[in-house]
Amino acid sequence: SRKHELGPACVKCNSLKFRRAKSTAVCRYSGAIPACSAAIPACSAAIPTNPATRIARTAGVAAAWRVAACLCWRPEVTTRVRHGSVFQLLTDLKEQRKESGKNKHSSGQQNLNTITYETLKYISKTPCRHQSPEIVREFLTAMKSHKLTKAEKLQLLNHRPMTAVEIQLMVEESEERLTEEQIEALLHTVTSILPAGPEAEQKKNTDDVTMDEEDPA
């Protein structure tokens, strides 16, 4: 197999897609930052203050550019959240509103009611509704050895993949980064730690039913 050198991950979102965007210096995950690539000359002028980047600069244009692009990344304004925590938040909100009852203040909240109802409905169908903070912590500890990016771990949590083909979708360049054994191990960790979703339970029930039906035949 050909050797593939992985470049540095994006500082902001830890994605490796950064490496692929040769011409634009834009990380595909954290969004287009055209100002960033345009500002590179200014950046490299500012570089000498940082000894690490000075070294990178002498090592070649490409390296300097890579570091420069990372340096002028804007501060984090958004954080990704798990489905599970959104689910928790929405259920709490629902309870709270139920408790406070139909008081006179809760008029004009139809928008909030619609969106929370629909979102709750969507998340209830995913395996995330049973994910407690303890389970997530255990999962993340177990994931340390697999060397995945944050975005990949988030998707594993949100989807709870059960087949190798799903892992290949969620993990970038999985053919190069993971061997078959590693994918198997990953699948095992995911399915053993994370609780199954409502679909799986239903499926189990229907399986039982069909088996019962087949038995007399």
């Binding site: 929405l90 203040h105 809760s106 909240q109 928008n111 909030l112 969106i115 929370t116």
Partner: peptide, 20 residues
């Protein structure tokens, strides 16, 4: 309550669909 009244179920330009 005011913030939810103002933002919930609305799309914010270049930000996304606000939930709660």
């Amino acid at each position: 309550e005011e913030l939810n009244k103002k933002l919930a179920n609305k799309v914010m330009y270049n930000v996304g669909l606000c939930i709660c």
